[in-house]
């Protein structure tokens, strides 16, 4: 028993989550770029059972409500729509409307902020970039998956970005909180929560970060968006949670980067064969 306590690997394994993951493990990620031929850019991303489609149209001439936006003279406009398929929820729940409700509008705005942070909007004056999200299946952390999918779709559309905007959620479940109150470093938090973990009483923090900027500039603050939900959280625990979520973001970035590079390699190979 003593030996086990001394071994950091075994210590981590000691606590296994419902789906067999360790607390700091992200779910299995699979992604595909260029799903649709008609859109300028599109991506499909699947993290665990959460499945999201993202499409990008543009840059094009502003239309609709953004046509009257005064800001468009100096920089481009990002337009987002976040919609959830009515059949996407589990447990026999059916959504009434795919979009337009409060929650979707809030997420639309957050997604827009995240995307505005990574696109060089000064390059796209007098134009508009549309980003449409379609959540096909919900199993927790769907906003985070949507942000990651939107980043991939932007890359597929060939729009220059400063860095990947990577989102990850971290959940502190109530029962774990009490157990680990005794000065545990990670505070018993769970990375990339699934639906069941998200629904349990506790606190969920979703962050959007620029992982590469963190590495290159050694800055501590690279969060572009943070969003908490659930119960109250003591401020002293925030820093540890942020750090852990950031580490997970770096892992996700590496996986998505590999997907993008792989896609470009295959794409280039196909084109050279066609020539």
């Amino acid at each position: 028993m003593e030996q086990r306590n001394g071994n950091p690997v075994l210590q981590k394994v000691a606590f296994v989550r419902g789906d067999g993951r360790s607390p700091s493990e992200i779910r299995h990620i699979s992604a595909r770029l260029g799903v649709f031929g008609q859109a300028d850019g599109s991506a499909y991303l699947q993290q665990g059972l959460t499945k999201v489609l993202a499409t990008v149209y543009g840059p094009h001439q502003p239309r609709g409500k953004s046509a009257g936006n005064m800001l468009k003279a100096v920089k481009g406009i990002v337009n987002c729509q976040y919609s959830t398929a009515v059949f996407s929820f589990g447990a026999g729940v059916r959504k009434k409307r795919p979009r337009g409700d409060r929650k979707s509008q809030e997420r639309e705005q957050q997604l827009r902020h995240a995307m505005e942070a990574i696109i060089n909007l000064e390059l796209f004056a007098k134009s508009q970039i549309d980003i449409f999200i379609e959540v096909l299946q919900v199993d927790g952390s769907e906003f985070c998956v949507a942000v990651n999918a939107a980043t991939l779709a932007l890359i597929d559309a060939g729009i220059p970005i400063k860095d990947y905007a990577i989102a990850c959620s971290i959940t502190v479940a109530d029962d774990v909180t009490e157990k680990d109150e005794e000065g545990a470093q990670d505070g018993g938090s769970l990375i990339d929560a699934n639906w069941v973990e998200e629904c349990s009483p506790g606190f969920t923090l979703s962050i959007v970060s620029l992982p590469k900027v963190v590495d290159e500039t050694q800055t501590q603050s690279s969060l572009i968006l943070a969003h908490g939900a659930g119960r109250r959280l003591h401020l002293s625990r925030l820093e540890a949670l942020r750090q852990r979520a950031l580490d997970a973001c770096k892992d996700i970035r590496d996986i998505l980067d590999a997907v993008v590079r792989n896609h470009l390699h295959t794409h280039a190979a196909i084109q050279s064969v066609e020539k």
């Binding site: 649709f36 008609q38 337009n79 729509q81 795919p98 549309d130 449409f132 379609e134």
Partner: peptide, 10 residues
């Protein structure tokens, strides 16, 4: 879905 065509937005 607006994925199909931007005119389907909203």
């Amino acid at each position: 879905s607006a994925n199909a065509n931007p005119i389907f937005e909203g």
